[in-house]
Design a protein around this nucleic acid. Structure first.
Lengths: 197, 197
DNA sequence: TGGAATATTGACCAAACGGTCAGGATCAAG
DNA sequence: CTTGATCCTGACCGTTTGGTCAATATTCCA
C-alpha cells in the first residue's frame, strides 16, 4: 500500500469514526465522512467501495483495541488488583476513546447487524476465558463469589456509561466536575466492597 | 380530541417507538412508522406534521414514565430497601420496556438534541432531590457513604444495559438463561455489599 | 337524512443520498 | 523527460426520503 493510500484510508476511517459515532450507520452520510476527512465524496468511494464497507472496516479495525484490556487480565496476578486494573483500563478508554465506545454502542443498540459473527464467536471465547480465571479465583477464596458474566456486564456498562451517556452525565453533574476522575474513585470503592472475600 | 384521533395518535406513537428505538431518529423513516402503525404515510403526517414532531411527542410522553421509579423512593422508608426497590424497578423496566430504554439511549448517544432542556432542567432537579435523601441517609449512618450521583449513574447504566445491549448480553450468556432474572440477583448482592453501612 | 367537519389516500415534488464514470491531475520509476 | 499507474474530481444517475395537496371517503350530529 502506497504512502498516499495509507494516509487517505486513515483519514477516511477517522472521519467515519466521527460521523458513525454520533449519527450511527444509517444516520451518517458519505458526505459527512468526506468532509470530516477533508476529501471529496468520490475520492472516499475510490478507497472504500461503499458506506457499509467503511463501517465494516472501522469496526474490524477497532474491535481488537476495544477488547484488549480484558485480555490483559493476568491469571497469575493478585485477583482484586487484576480486576481493579481492568476496571480502571476500561474507564480510561471511556475518557480517551469515547467515540469508539459510542460507535460500538450504536452498533449493538441496533442489534449488531455487522457484529453478529464476532459477538457469537470471538467475544464469547474471550469472555469465557476470563470467566474461567474469575471462577478459579472465587473457588480459591481470593475473590468474593458473584456471577462472573454479570460482573463483566457491570464493568462494561458502568465504565462505558461515562462515554456513551456523557451528555446526561454532564447535565446531572453540572460544570466544573470531572466525571471520570470521580467515577474512578466510585468504581474502585464499589468493586473493592463487592469482590473482597 | 375525537375517538379516532386518540386511537390513531396512539398507533403512530407505538409505531414510532418501534422504529425509533431500533434505528434512531435519522435512521427511522416515516414509511416504517406508518407501516408499523398500519396507516398510510400521508395519514401519519395528518396527525403529526413532521418526523421530528413525532419524535418529540414520543420523548415527551415517555419521559415521565421513565423517570417515575426514582420519584417513588420514599424518604421515610428504610434506606437499603428503598434503594434496592429502585434498582429492582429499573431492572423490570428493562424487561418490560426495552424499546423505551433504547429510544432514550439513541437520543443521549447523539447528544440529546431534543432533550437538552429536560436534561438540564427537570432531570437534574429530580436527581438533586434524590441526592438530598441519599446524603441524609449517609449522614445518619444508615447507608454507606458513596458519591450519590455516581451511585445513581451505576444504577442507570447497569439496569439499562440489559435492555440497550441485549444483543450482546444474550450472545455472551448463550441461550436458555434469563439475563434479567440473573441480573436481579447480582444487582441485589452488589448494592447490598456497597451500601450496607 | 343531509351536510359540514373530519379523516384518508394516490399522486406528486424537491432535496438528500449512495454510488458511477469519463476524463484530467499527479506521482513514481526508468 | 517520458510514460504508465495511481489518484482525484465534476457531473451525473437512480432511489429513497420528508413532506404537500387536491380529491375522495368517512364520521358525526342537527
Amino acid at each position: 500500500m502506497s504512502r498516499i493510500q495509507q494516509k487517505n484510508r486513515d483519514l477516511i476511517l477517522q472521519g467515519a469514526l466521527q460521523a458513525f459515532s454520533t449519527h450511527g450507520l444509517r444516520g451518517a452520510t458519505i458526505d459527512q465522512i468526506a468532509r470530516a476527512a477533508g476529501l471529496s465524496k468520490p475520492n472516499v468511494l475510490y478507497y472504500f467501495g461503499s458506506k457499509d464497507e467503511i463501517h465494516k472496516a472501522l469496526l474490524t479495525t477497532l474491535l481488537d483495541m476495544w477488547l484488549a484490556p480484558m485480555q490483559q487480565i493476568d491469571p497469575k496476578g493478585e485477583p482484586l488488583v487484576e480486576v481493579l486494573s481492568y476496571v480502571r483500563a476500561k474507564l480510561l478508554m471511556s475518557r480517551d476513546y469515547p467515540r469508539e465506545s459510542r460507535l460500538f454502542a450504536h452498533e449493538i443498540l441496533q442489534g449488531a447487524p455487522h457484529l453478529t459473527e464476532i459477538l457469537g464467536g470471538g467475544l464469547r471465547e474471550i469472555v469465557d476465558r476470563t470467566v474461567v480465571v474469575l471462577e478459579r479465583w472465587m473457588d480459591e477464596g481470593r475473590l468474593a463469589r458473584v456471577e462472573p458474566r454479570h460482573l463483566i456486564f457491570s464493568i462494561w456498562s458502568m465504565t462505558q456509561h461515562y462515554a456513551d451517556f456523557e451528555t446526561q452525565v454532564r447535565a446531572v453533574l453540572g460544570a466544573g466536575r470531572d466525571p471520570i476522575d470521580e467515577g474512578a474513585v466510585f468504581l474502585d470503592d464499589l468493586y473493592r466492597k463487592l469482590l473482597t472475600p
